[in-house]
Amino acid sequence: MSSFSSRTWLPILLILAAILLAIIAAGRSPAGQAHEAAITALRTIDLAHASLQRDVLRARAGLLRSYDSIVVEIETLRSNVSALRARFNEAEIYDAELTPPLR
């Protein structure tokens, strides 16, 4: 049971990291295209998180026959967070003195 609960925190932490990155990016007043790309990535992350929550609840209730959709949603979350980090690093949307580049 404890390993299940630690896995459920991963998507939440990824979403919080993405939101934090978006707030940092918005504070620097990014260009229109960069802003739209960040918003699109955040929407995709939000949708994948909602799907993941739905499927986890279905799995706990015994209604999900295959865990493939959960794996796909976690991969989607990870790839979108990585893409968002890459966009922020490319645009140098961080304070070099206070925040190191994201890895």
Results as ranks from 00 to 15, higher is better:
Ile19Arg: 14
Ile15Glu: 04
Ser66Asn: 07
Ala26Lys: 08
Glu90Val: 08
Ala37Val: 02
Leu42Asn: 14
Ile15Trp: 07
Glu36Trp: 05
Ala41Tyr: 07
Ile74Leu: 15
Pro101Val: 00
Ser79Ile: 09
Glu36Leu: 09
Ser3Trp: 08
Phe88Met: 12
Ala61Lys: 04
Ser82Asn: 11
Ile74Lys: 13
His49Cys: 03
Pro101Glu: 01
Ala59Cys: 09
Ser79Trp: 08
Leu77Ala: 06
Asn89Met: 08
Arg54Ile: 05
Ile45Cys: 06
His35Val: 01
Ser69Thr: 11
Leu20Ser: 13
Leu47Phe: 05
Arg54Gly: 08
Arg60Phe: 01
Tyr67Gly: 15
Ser29Trp: 03
Tyr67Asn: 15
Thr8Pro: 00
Ser2Asn: 05
Leu47Ile: 06
Ser2Gln: 05
Ala59Lys: 12
Leu20Thr: 14
His49Phe: 11
Phe88Ala: 12
Thr44Ser: 13
Leu21Val: 09
Ser3Gly: 09
Asp46Ile: 04
Leu63Val: 01
Ile15Cys: 07
Ala31Gln: 11
Leu84Tyr: 12
Gln53Ile: 05
Glu97Gln: 03
Ala22Thr: 08
Asp55Asn: 11
Thr44Cys: 12
Arg7Ala: 14
Thr8Met: 04
Leu13Val: 11
Ile12Val: 11
Leu47Ser: 06
Leu20His: 15
Tyr67His: 15
Ile74Arg: 15
Ala37Ser: 09
Ala48Arg: 07
Ser82Ile: 03
Ile15Gln: 04
Ser2Phe: 03
Arg60Val: 00
Tyr94Thr: 01
Phe88His: 10
Arg43Asn: 12
Glu36Gln: 11
Ile15Gly: 01
Leu77Trp: 07
Tyr94Met: 01
Ser5Leu: 06
Arg58Asp: 10
Ala37Leu: 09
Ala26Pro: 05
Ser69Pro: 04
Asn89Cys: 11
Glu73Ser: 10
Ala91Cys: 12
Ala83Phe: 06
Gly62Arg: 02
Asn80Pro: 02
Arg60Glu: 03
Asp55Met: 10
Arg60Ser: 00
Ala22His: 02
Ala38Leu: 13
Leu20Tyr: 12
Ala26Trp: 10
Ile24Pro: 00
Glu36Ile: 00
Thr99Glu: 13
Gln33Asn: 14
Arg65Met: 07
Ala41Ile: 04
Leu21Arg: 05
Leu102Lys: 07
Ser3Gln: 13
Asp95Tyr: 00
Ala18Leu: 07
Tyr67Glu: 15
Ile39Ala: 14
Leu16Pro: 00
Ile12Asn: 07
Thr40Asn: 13
Ile93Gln: 06
Arg7Gly: 09
Glu73Tyr: 01
Ala18His: 06
Glu97Ala: 06
Ala59Ile: 07
